[in-house]
Amino acid sequence: MPNPTYIPQDFKSDQYVRWCPGCGNFAILNAIYKALAEVGVSPANTAVISGIGCSSRLSYYMNTYGFHTIHGRATAIATGVKVANPALSVWQFTGDGDCLAIGGNHFIHALRRNIDINIVLHNNEIYGLTKGQFSPTSPKGMITKSSPYGTIERPFKPAELIFGAGGTFFARTVDVDIPTSVETMVAAAKHHGTSVVEVLQNCVIFNDGAYKMISTKELRAENVIFLKHGEPMLFGKNKEKGLTLEGFNLKAVSLGGRGVSAKDVLIHDATTQDFVLHQKLAAMSAPDLPIAMGVIRNVEESTYDDALVNQIHEVQSKSRIKTFEDLLDSIDSWEI
């Protein structure tokens, strides 16, 4: 249930929102307003950090603390903000170019350290702000301004990168599905550690229709599975399909066919430390298997910021230096 203390309007700034008409960023912005109101942390205790790109304009539209940083450095700044003030709820909004290209090193080390920040990754598989060059997530062969004959690079799959770096929370949604976006962002806020919500986002100008297989409710019913912890992995318009394991591989089956029943369908466990199944779920793609949405992984590990605060307190408790005057008295000095 929404937190009665705040409403979405409380998190809206007075700035005019400037994105191309039809851009998926509008839906993402609407979702974060609703999610933050539900989480119930005050705007004065929230910080929104962004880098460079269309998605990174979002920090201007938030009635919170905000920092529009430089290209690829949003994760580093978000880390510093959290370490300097652990009480803040820190959100980073970033694109596939900003986060996975120039910012890739900062991104993977935040995941490795498990800093308690929330990263919303807008993935439109293109550089939009700089007018249509291919990005680290652009499909191989995609024709763009910078690959007129088709890109020859293999794309990053964000989930694989996140799991490889030891990520503790990963969720996925699509921009037009605001309820699922809100649900995953709320879950991310409640997670203690680095959370990543990948939003599959349409760029109406330079990559329109990138996610056309899931752009309508009818198509999503057949090509998407919404995972919920503790519930069977069912999909289809009438939940008539499910996921099972065949050897080491996932398989989509129709219930009632060839003796398959609901009891044969896998139950989603987002909290298991064994992330092999999480990886398989995140790697699924239509039409052979449904695209996984919702919270795929949500495990608890110690965080960098907690460890740092504890270390500082431990060192302080053992040190004879308690004040700035103590520090001055501890070093060599001369009277002239």
Rank of each mutant, 00 (worst) to 15 (best):
R172F: 07
Q15H: 11
F156E: 02
V41E: 14
N123C: 14
D14T: 12
V90R: 00
H68M: 06
D208G: 12
E160G: 12
V90S: 01
E198Y: 03
A84H: 00
L121R: 05
V90M: 05
S302E: 15
H313A: 13
G72N: 10
P8M: 01
C203P: 10
N298D: 14
R18F: 05
Q133L: 05
L36R: 05
N298V: 03
G104R: 11
V41K: 11
V176H: 12
H192G: 03
E301Y: 01
M293Y: 12
S317T: 06
I214M: 15
D177T: 06
Q9F: 12
N30M: 05
V253E: 14
K251N: 15
G128D: 06
K251P: 09
E218M: 12
I7H: 07
T151M: 06
E38R: 09
E153S: 13
T151Y: 04
G128F: 02
C23K: 06
I70F: 11
A262C: 04
H191Y: 09
C99Y: 01
Y6G: 04
K263M: 09
A74I: 04
V17N: 04
H191V: 09
S181P: 00
I178A: 02
D98P: 00
S55I: 04
I321E: 03
I225G: 01
D175M: 02
P179L: 13
V17L: 06
L29E: 02
I214H: 02
I143T: 13
G256V: 11
A101I: 11
S147Y: 08
K212M: 03
S285Q: 12
S317H: 00
I52R: 01
P155Q: 01
